Computed example of a mutant assay.
Amino acid sequence: MKLGLTLGYWGARQPEGQPELVALAEQLGFDSVWTAEAYGSDALTPLAWLGSRTSRLRLGTSVVQMSARTPAATAMAAMTMDHLTGGRFVLGIGASGPQVVEGWYGQPYPKPLARTREYVTILRQAFAREVVAFDGEHYRLPFPGGTGLGKPLRSTIHPVRPDIPILLAAEGPKNVALAAEIADGWIPLFYSPTDDEHYRAALQEGFARDGARRSAEDFEVACMVPVVIGDDADTAADQVRPMLALYIGGMGARGVNFHYEVFARMGFEAECAGIQDLYLDGRRDEAAAAVPLAMVEKIALVGPREKIADDLAAWKGSLLTTMMIGGDANTLRLMAELVA
C-alpha cells in the first residue's frame, strides 16, 4: 500500500502551507498528491501549480466532476497535465450528485452510469489521438444540428501517454462494478476494510465482464482515510464527526444520498437517519455529536500512535493500493513511518 497526500478542495480561500506539505510528502517518499473540486476551487489549477514544484510524485484529481467539462475539455486538460508533468498525471473523475450537477453546473443528472461509460469512451479516443466521433445518448460529436459545419477532429497535441490512467469515483455497487470494467482504478469516498464484502463482489463482477480493461492484480484503489493523532480516540474523532455529519446529513436529499447509503450498508442505518434529521433541521452541531465513535473508526484512523499503528493492519490487508491522507507535517511523518 502506497501513501498519497490529499489536499481536497479549498474552503473560502487557499489553505496555508500546501506547498510545504507537498514538498514534505515528496521528501518522505509519498507516491502521489491529490486535489479535488466541489463548487468553489477547481481541481486542475492547484494541482498544476503545486505539481510544478515536484519531480517524482504522481499528480491526481480526486476528483474532476464530469459535468464541469465536456469529455473533450477534460481530455485536453489531462493531456496537457501529462505533458507538463512528464507522464505523472492521474485522472480521477466522478459523476458527483444531482444537487451539484443540476444546481451548479446546470446539467442533467439522470443515468450517471450510462453517462460515465460514454464519457470514458470519448476520453480514450482523445488520449489515443484518434479522430473523435461519438453518437451516444448523452454525448454526440460532432454536434447534430447547429450550423451543420462541425466535423470530427483529432487532438493537435501528441499525448505523452495514449492511455492516461482513469480512476472512477464510485460508492454504489453498480458504479463500482463499472469502474472495474472500464477504468484503471476506483476512488471510494468512504471505505471500511472490515465491511467491504459488497465492494469485493462488485469489483469482481466488473473484472469478469467481457472487455474488462484490467484485473484485480493491476487495478488501483485510492481512498482518502482521515488520520487524527491524539491521546484519546473519542476526542480525536471530533475532528472527523462534522465532515461525516455533512456528507450523511447534507450532501444529498432525504432518500437520495449516496454517502448515507454507504454507512447504512455498514450497519449504521438508524444512526444515519438520526444524523440526517438533525442536519436537515439545521442542528448541525447536534448532528456531528450524534456520529458514534464506531462509525468514525470504520473509515478513519484516530487516537494515540499505538492505536493507529494497530488499526493500520486492517488497512494494509484491504483492497486499498493507495491510502490518501491529509493533516499536518507530524501526521505525514507518522504515516510514512508506519506504512513503511
Rank of each mutant, 00 (worst) to 15 (best):
V221S: 01
G145V: 06
G172H: 04
A236T: 06
R140E: 13
V132R: 10
A216D: 11
G106S: 09
M224T: 15
I187W: 04
D135Y: 11
G206K: 04
A179Q: 03
G172N: 12
W104M: 12
Y119P: 06
K174T: 08
L178Q: 02
A216H: 13
G230K: 03
P152E: 11
G103T: 08
Y139P: 06
G172Y: 06
V120C: 02
K111T: 08
F219G: 03
R209D: 03
R115L: 07
P112S: 06
G206L: 01
G172S: 14
W104E: 00
R115V: 12
Q107C: 02
Y191Q: 04
P152D: 07
H138V: 06
A202L: 05
G206C: 04
I157F: 08
E118W: 09
P152A: 12
D218W: 03
Y105L: 01
P193H: 13
T147Y: 08
E171P: 02
D184F: 05
C223Q: 13
P152F: 11
E217M: 09
P112W: 01
H198F: 15
I122E: 02
D210T: 14
F134W: 15
E181M: 08
I229Y: 00
V120K: 02
P226F: 09
G146T: 07
Y199I: 13
D135F: 08
W104I: 14
P110W: 10
P108F: 07
E171H: 14
V101F: 01
